[in-house]
Design a protein around this nucleic acid. Structure first.
Length: 516
DNA sequence: AACTTTATCAACCGCTCGAAA
DNA sequence: GTTTCGAGCGGTTGATAAAGT
């Protein structure tokens, strides 16, 4: 009996023969002298196409593995299916994308992320592969040009759609999150000097944008995730937040790197209105520079941070756009208590999505496992990005809420400690030299909510901040949260105190230790 | 004209999922 | 309940064309 094997470079015909005219002669046959069917790879020939077309005409689609058996075509079933779906199937469009199609793709991507197959169902005559190629090309082009990924009208439309989805949904995000402004009058980042901020990732306008009037965070469209295309399960094998909570080791792998902290927080002024706060290539318009110096390792594919980006860009186009009643983006800072009905279900899923975002953010900062490992063994870095602090603040919020809601899956103290332990490397030294430095413009400003009470970092804490341990966001934020609570007259020990208490000694300054 | 860079497209690969055995 | 297989999906790669220097 014949057996099929795939042709590989080192065992059969050389690569240049595959798909070449000489190789085409037996392209439909594919049997070698020893009776072994050599499955061809590479470009399809017209003969192969006609054979496959005849087969489908005769037997219909599916059962692709039978193609080789039935027709003798030296292609595996997978290849046949792909060829048929992408090229031979009737009614396929071969022309360039029309503006309408481009618009639709942008809208769909804003809504569902990298679900190419799902998009293809909405675009008659287009294949998932085609859409994917188009989009990836577009991303490159837009990034190179420093343009927003999504057209403004897509942003607006997406926002409208999501609002209507909210209305149809069970919970209103604004029940959970409040506040429209990002003003922290006391905190400035004036001293984010060029070349002093080494960020292990490039500015990604889709990923790291916070704007003042950006008031909505996407309702999860699927899997309870904030970010379509990045479901809670993190299909890339990334652990879910629940897993992270339960397995500190994963957290360490996840967050254990990439949080170098900028070390000159003597004055912080954050202006979220137009800048991409978390990115190193921050610009007042939220775009990449036209020169397109994307110097850090980053994937060209962008996550679909639906509202984050859509709102951002709509805001860029229309700064006076009224805030939406949806979940405010400053939820990254603030998670007001949810209504009782929300706590048990909605909040958890939402937080899963948020964590995914954090996780993804961390991933975006760490390109290789080696970097992870090197950081774990040398958990020091010399600089911090505002984004890192953001990530930590997000984690703080998350963890705090988990405790507040007594989420059974989140043993807060342990989790928080774990997260802090691994996500807040110390400041001194530097182990992320692999990453080329990126710059933050001196005019970089970010404004935080007025109702968000950070400690007055610019005054009186200079000495404290100069201490490596207290420069870390966990220390800063821990101090912040505790201070905030105390300022509210709360005598209870905050969950963050618990978390801080769990931190190893070397991770915290003495002032934060409350170990029994 | 030669060379380099960039864009585009086609195809492959690894993985997941569901159905059937 | 487990294994196997087919189908499908998303990410990535390689080849080639086009544009730029």
């Amino acid at each position: 009996m014949k057996r099929a094997r795939e042709e590989s470079d080192n065992e059969m015909a050389p690569n240049d023969q595959i798909g070449s005219p000489s190789a085409n002669e037996d392209s439909s046959g594919g049997s070698s002298a020893d009776g072994v069917v050599v499955l061809k790879k590479g470009p399809w020939t017209a003969d192969e196409d006609s054979i496959l077309s005849e087969y489908v005409e005769k037997f219909g689609e599916g059962n692709w593995n039978n193609v080789q058996k039935t027709t003798g075509l030296a292609r595996n079933g997978k290849s046949c299916r792909l060829r048929w779906a992408n090229h031979l199937r009737p009614n396929l469009k071969k022309c360039p994308f029309s503006p309408e199609e481009e618009q639709l793709v942008a809208e769909l991507h804003a809504q569902i992320g990298n679900k190419w197959a799902r998009m293809a169902t909405q675009l008659t005559g287009r294949t998932d592969n085609e859409i994917k190629n188009y989009w990836n090309t577009r991303i490159k082009r837009q990034q190179r040009a420093g343009l927003p990924l999504y057209p403004p009208n897509v942003c607006a439309r997406s926002k409208e759609n999501q609002q209507s989805e909210f209305n149809c949904g069970d919970k209103q995000p604004h029940e959970l999150l409040q506040g429209n402004t990002f003003n922290i009058s006391d905190i400035t980042f004036d001293n984010l000097h060029h070349n002093q901020v080494t960020l292990p990732y490039a500015y990604d306008p889709q990923r790291y944008i916070f704007t003042n009037s950006m008031n909505t965070v996407n309702q999860p469209t699927e899997s309870g995730s904030f970010f379509p295309g990045y479901s809670s399960g993190m299909s890339s094998g990334f652990p879910s937040f629940k897993e992270l909570l339960n397995e500190p080791g994963k957290i360490q792998q996840t967050f254990g790197v990439s949080n170098p902290y900028y070390t000159e927080p003597s004055r912080y002024r954050l202006d979220y209105r137009d800048s991409a706060f978390l990115g190193s290539q921050s610009h007042l318009n939220g775009n990449l520079p036209a020169s397109g110096h994307i110097t850090s390792p980053m994937k060209p594919e962008l996550p679909s941070l639906q509202d984050t980006e859509t709102d951002t860009f709509s805001c860029l186009e229309n700064p006076t756009a009224p805030p939406t009643p949806c979940e405010p983006t400053d939820s990254y800072f603030q998670y007001p208590a949810a209504s009782e009905s929300v706590k048990s279900e909605y909040v958890s899923s939402q937080h899963d999505g948020l964590l995914d975002a954090l996780v993804h953010q961390s991933l975006g900062k760490v390109s290789t496992k080696n970097q992870l490992e090197s950081f774990k063994t040398s958990p020091t870095s010399s600089v911090a990005s505002p984004g890192d602090m953001f990530a930590c603040s997000e984690l703080n919020n998350y963890l705090e809420n988990l405790a507040e809601y007594n989420d059974p899956i989140s043993p807060l103290g342990f989790s928080a400690a774990s997260v802090f332990n691994v996500s807040t490397p110390q400041i001194s030294g530097g182990s992320l030299n692999e990453f080329p430095p990126t710059e933050v413009p001196s005019g970089f400003e970010t404004t935080l909510p007025a109702d968000l009470h950070f400690p007055d970092l610019k005054m009186g804490e200079q000495d404290t901040l100069s201490h490596p341990g207290t420069l870390r966001p966990d220390a800063l934020l821990g101090s912040f949260w505790r201070r905030t609570e105390s300022s509210q007259g709360t005598n209870e020990q905050s969950p963050l105190d618990d978390a801080m208490a769990m931190l190893p000694d070397e991770d915290l300054g003495d002032e934060n230790k409350t170990m029994p």
